[in-house]
Simulated scan of single mutants.
Amino acid sequence: MSTGSSSARMSGGPRSQDLRTRVDGGAGLERRARATVRLDGIDHRLLAALAEDARMPNNALAARVGIAPSTCLTRVRRLRDEGVIRGFHADVDPALAGRPLQAIIAVRMQGAARSHLPAFARELARLPGVLDVYLIGGAHDFFVHVTAPDSDVLNDFVIENLSANPGVALTETNLIFQHTRGGWY
């Protein structure tokens, strides 16, 4: 299961809501509660295989993990329903898609704007070129991962969407020279 700028999301089922604490009353930002889903060795092998190739057909996934296809289907469905699997995503190469410049923009908000963090995060996530928005602790409030076709477009993005916003106190743009995706599992 990989992340990228283009994604087709499959939401978790009703039970997955029980496992999340909504930061903003259900508007997009979430924090995982301490409760976790009980997973066994087969579940972990399924997750590792799907993290490597989320498009693997069910029968191939079952064979790789060593279980029957019907069992595999049931277990993957349960993992989705429990919210362990949040979605399946296309890993798009931004450079090959015409957006070779990537940056992480650190954003610090004005003190009075802190009550609007969830709304601001949703607003940022909808902007063209934004891959991810992270609400963080520390000196900054957000890290925003963006792509752009060139430095002029990146500059315009920062000025028009961040610096011009009266709630934004500071931005710091860090260019990404190389990116190596880790295997989380």
Rank of each mutant, 00 (worst) to 15 (best):
P14W: 04
P14C: 02
P14E: 11
P14N: 07
R15H: 04
S16V: 00
Q17N: 06
D18F: 00
T21K: 02
T21G: 02
T21P: 00
V23W: 02
D24G: 14
G25M: 05
G28E: 03
L29G: 07
L29M: 08
E30T: 04
R34G: 10
A35G: 02
T36W: 01
V37L: 02
V37C: 03
L39S: 01
L39C: 01
L39D: 00
D40R: 00
G41C: 04
I42Y: 01
I42G: 01
H44Q: 12
R45C: 01
R45S: 05
L46T: 02
L46Q: 05
A48W: 00
A49L: 05
A51T: 03
A51K: 00
E52M: 06
D53P: 01
A54G: 11
M56V: 13
A60N: 05
A63W: 00
G66T: 01
I67P: 00
A68D: 04
A68W: 00
P69R: 01
P69S: 03
P69H: 03
P69T: 07
S70D: 07
S70T: 09
C72F: 02
C72D: 04
L73F: 08
T74R: 06
T74I: 05
T74A: 08
R75F: 02
R75K: 07
R75S: 03
V76M: 01
R77N: 03
E82P: 01
V84N: 00
R86M: 06
G87A: 04
F88I: 09
D93N: 06
L96K: 05
L96Y: 01
A97S: 12
A97W: 07
G98V: 03
R99W: 13
R99Y: 14
P100E: 09
L101P: 03
Q102C: 10
I104P: 00
I105P: 07
A106T: 06
A106D: 10
A106C: 10
V107K: 01
V107R: 00
V107M: 08
V107E: 10
R108M: 05
M109G: 04
M109A: 08
G111W: 13
A112P: 01
A112Q: 12
A112G: 08
R114W: 15
R114Y: 11
R114L: 15
S115I: 14
S115M: 11
H116W: 11
H116P: 01
F120Q: 09
R122P: 05
R122C: 12
R122L: 12
E123Q: 09
A125H: 11
R126M: 13
L127K: 11
L127R: 13
L127Y: 08
L127S: 08
L127P: 08
P128L: 08
G129N: 10
L131Q: 15
D132T: 13
D132Y: 10
V133H: 05
V133T: 08
I136W: 05
I136E: 14
G138P: 10
A139T: 14
A139Q: 13
H140Y: 15
H140G: 07
D141T: 09
V144W: 12
V146C: 09
T147K: 13
T147E: 14
T147D: 13
A148C: 11
A148V: 13
P149R: 15
P149E: 15
D150H: 12
D150G: 11
S151L: 15
V153W: 09
V153T: 15
N155V: 14
F157S: 12
V158A: 12
V158H: 09
V158K: 11
I159H: 12
I159V: 15
N161R: 11
